[in-house]
C-alpha cells in the first residue's frame, strides 16, 4: 500500500514537473511567424527565412535560454524523436551544441561519424539519406564540405525527415547566423539601421553569407573587409559595401564579426603570410576605437587567438560576445529543433 501511494505521489510530482516545464515553452499567441514554422520542414539557409520566422525563432530561443540557463532537467517535448548528427566534416563545437540542444528537449541523439565510415566506402548522400529514413530518424543535422549538400539531402528526404543545415561548404550556416543575431539583440540594440562589419575571409565563409542574408533582412547595413583575394566577386551587387582596408569597414560600426582565418589559405597562396594578415585585419582595442563606443565584437569560433583578434579583446567581456555566442548557440538550436519538430506528442 505504501508502495502504491508513493508511486502515486511520484507520479503526481512527475506530472507537476512536466506541467511546469511544458509551461516554460508555452509560446505567446502573438507570434506571426509560428504558422510559417509549422509549414516549414527544413532549415537550410537564412536566405529563405521571413522576418516573422526569424522573430518567432528569437522569441522561442529566449524561452529556451531561460530553461537552459536555470539548469532545469531536460524537457520531454521531443522525447519520442530521434535526431541524427551527420557530420562529414570535423566540428566539435557545432556538433556538441546541437547534441546538447536536442537532449535538453528530450530527444534521442544519434551521432553518425560518416566521414570515417560510409564515404570511404563510396556511399553517396542518397544512400545515406535512404539509410536514415529506414532507421526512422526524425531529423538530420548535417555538416558537409560541399555547398548545396544540405539542399540535396532535403530534396532526397522531402517530407520524411527534417534537415538542419549545420554548414554546407562555403554556402550557409543558418544556426550560426541566428545565434549571432540573438547575441546582438541581447545587447538591447535593434538591428535595423545598424552598421555590421564582417572582417576576414569572406569567400570561404558560410558564416559570412548566412549573416549577410539574415541581417540584411532585418535592415542592417553590412560592410565587409578582407584581403581582396578572400572577398568574393560582385558581393556589392547584393547591397554589401566592400572595403579592402579594415578601418573604413569598422568606422562607427555597432557590431564587428571577425571570421576565422583557415591557416591553409597561406599555403594556397591566397595571403602572403599570417603576419601580413594580422598587420592589416587583426582586431584589437586600438583599432576598435573607430567603432561606436558601445561596439560589440563577435567571432564564430574557434578563435585563432592573436590572429583574427587579440587575446585581450576576446577576453574583454565588455566588448566581446564570444562566450555569450556559445551559450546562445544552444538556445537557438533548441528553438530550431523545437519549432521544426514539436508535434504536441511528447510525454
Amino acid at each position: 500500500m505504501s508502495d502504491a501511494s508513493s508511486l502515486a505521489v511520484e507520479k503526481s510530482t512527475k506530472k507537476k514537473m512536466a506541467d511546469e516545464t511544458d509551461s516554460n515553452l508555452i509560446l505567446p499567441d502573438n507570434l506571426p511567424g509560428l504558422n510559417a514554422w509549422k509549414a516549414r520542414r527544413h532549415l537550410l539557409d537564412t536566405k529563405d527565412m521571413s522576418v516573422e520566422e526569424v522573430d518567432a525563432l528569437i522569441a522561442v530561443a529566449k524561452l529556451c535560454k531561460e530553461i537552459h540557463s536555470k539548469g532545469r532537467p531536460p524537457l520531454t517535448v521531443l522525447s519520442h524523436k530521434v535526431v541524427a548528427n551527420l557530420f562529414y566534416e570535423n566540428s566539435t563545437r557545432t556538433r556538441s551544441s546541437f547534441e546538447l540542444a536536442a537532449r535538453k528537449l528530450g530527444a534521442s541523439v544519434l551521432n553518425l561519424d560518416i566521414r570515417m565510415s560510409s564515404v570511404a566506402k563510396g556511399e553517396t548522400i542518397e544512400d545515406t539519406a535512404r539509410t536514415l529514413v529506414s532507421m526512422g530518424v526524425d531529423a538530420v543535422v548535417q555538416r558537409h564540405s560541399s555547398s548545396g549538400s544540405a539542399h540535396k539531402l532535403a530534396e532526397l528526404l522531402r517530407h520524411e525527415v527534417h534537415v538542419l543545415n549545420a554548414g554546407d561548404g562555403w554556402n550557409a550556416h543558418p544556426t550560426q547566423a541566428l545565434l549571432d543575431l540573438f547575441s546582438m539583440q541581447e545587447t538591447g540594440k535593434t538591428i535595423k539601421g545598424r552598421k555590421v562589419a564582417i572582417i576576414g575571409d569572406i569567400t570561404h565563409s558560410r558564416v559570412a553569407r548566412s549573416n549577410i542574408w539574415l541581417l540584411q533582412k532585418l535592415g542592417a547595413d553590412i560592410h565587409v573587409a578582407g584581403p581582396p583575394t578572400l572577398v568574393p566577386v560582385e558581393l556589392d551587387s547584393f547591397g554589401v559595401t566592400v572595403h579592402e582596408k579594415l578601418e573604413p569597414a569598422i568606422k562607427d560600426a555597432d557590431f564587428v564579426i571577425a571570421l576565422r582565418l583557415q591557416l591553409e589559405r597561406q599555403d594556397e597562396g591566397l595571403i602572403p603570410s599570417i603576419g601580413e594578415y594580422k598587420r592589416l585585419y587583426r582586431l584589437d582595442h586600438e583599432r576598435i576605437k573607430r567603432c561606436k563606443p558601445d561596439v560589440r565584437v563577435l567571432h564564430p569560433g574557434p578563435v585563432n587567438r592573436g590572429i583574427e583578434i587579440t587575446d585581450d579583446l576576446v577576453d574583454d567581456s565588455k566588448v566581446s560576445l564570444v562566450n555569450l555566442q556559445v551559450a546562445n548557440g544552444i538556445a537557438v538550436r533548441m528553438a530550431v529543433l523545437y519549432l521544426l519538430m514539436y508535434d504536441g506528442q511528447g510525454t
Binding site: 555547398s147 554546407d168 568574393p232 560582385e234 558581393l235 551587387s237 547584393f238
Partner: peptide
C-alpha cells in the same frame, strides 16, 4: 561561372 551567382551560392567560380 564566377560572378554574383557563385558568390550567392557559395561556390568556387570559373572566371
Amino acid at each position: 561561372n564566377e560572378g554574383c551567382q557563385s558568390t550567392c551560392l557559395g561556390m568556387k567560380g570559373i572566371p
